[in-house]
């Protein structure tokens, strides 16, 4: 499965870079005010909304926003995430809020539609509480039922991100963000070990993958500066 993911990811990256050649040769000033933001994009993660509707064990939402500074984008995510698992031998619930902040770097500098293929870095933090009841039956130590709770647990982590954002119609943009999450550190896990951290996911491995499919609405501040001229061959 991971191999499939990696191959498909690389194919998409190459496909994204295969842009039509720009033949514009007019000399224009592209330097002035090029680092002033031209607009803010505000969106939401569609997958989280669908999962909340379709899955009994998940409820959550996520708001995403970014502001452009030429090819650099300040990206902020804020969300809510709750899991609820009920099995014969254990019940687990968690609920919390999280945010991420970071920078994306756009590699499609000459796209006339200002579409994005980006790589980025995020710093994430979550604050959550979780409860678990375990009904154990060990061969040696017998049966045991116990309840645990971590109130006000916190976690932080880093993410490498990549994805695309494509203008669909006027102010409407669609995009996806693939997230490679690592470096998870937690506090407040006093009674039990966390199974799931809002915004991060399962904690039983050193790294985690995340995926957002997002719809954005862009609010422009000012006209975008002209594109840089194409290099002559």
């Amino acid at each position: 499965m991971r191999s499939l993911f990696s191959i498909a990811f690389l194919l998409s990256a190459f496909a994204t870079f295969a842009q039509p050649k720009d033949t514009l040769t007019v000399s224009v000033d592209t330097v002035k005010n090029r680092f002033l933001p031209t607009g803010i994009r505000i969106g939401t993660d569609v997958i989280a909304l669908i999962k909340t509707q379709r899955q009994d064990d998940f409820k959550g939402w996520e708001i995403n926003a970014d502001v452009d500074f030429n090819r650099y984008y300040l990206a902020v995510d804020y969300g809510s995430w709750g899991r609820n698992f009920l099995t014969d031998s254990a019940t687990y619930q968690n609920d919390g809020r999280y945010w991420r902040v970071g920078v994306d770097v756009n590699f499609l500098l000459k796209d006339v539609e200002r579409n994005m293929f980006f790589l980025g870095l995020r710093y994430g933090r979550a604050r959550y509480n979780e409860q678990m009841t375990v009904i154990s039956d060990d061969d040696v130590w017998g049966a045991n039922t116990d309840s645990y709770e971590n109130a006000a647990a916190t976690a932080r982590w880093l993410e490498l991100t990549t994805g695309i954002k494509v203008k669909i119609y006027k102010f409407i943009w669609l995009g996806y963000t693939a997230r490679f999450k690592f470096g998870l550190k937690g506090k407040g896990q006093n009674e039990m070990l966390s199974h799931d951290v809002p915004g991060y996911g399962r904690t039983d491995k050193e790294t985690a993958w995340g995926f957002n499919y997002q719809i954005f609405f862009r609010i422009p501040f000012r006209p975008a500066p002209p594109l840089p001229p194409a290099k002559k061959k």
Binding site: F85, T87, S89, A90, M132, S136, M192, L193, D204
Partner: peptide, 14 residues
């Protein structure tokens, strides 16, 4: 410390 693993596995002790 106990930790929830999955719906199939239940919980484990670490």
């Amino acid at each position: 410390k106990a930790q929830f693993v999955s719906e199939d596995c239940g919980a484990k002790y670490v």
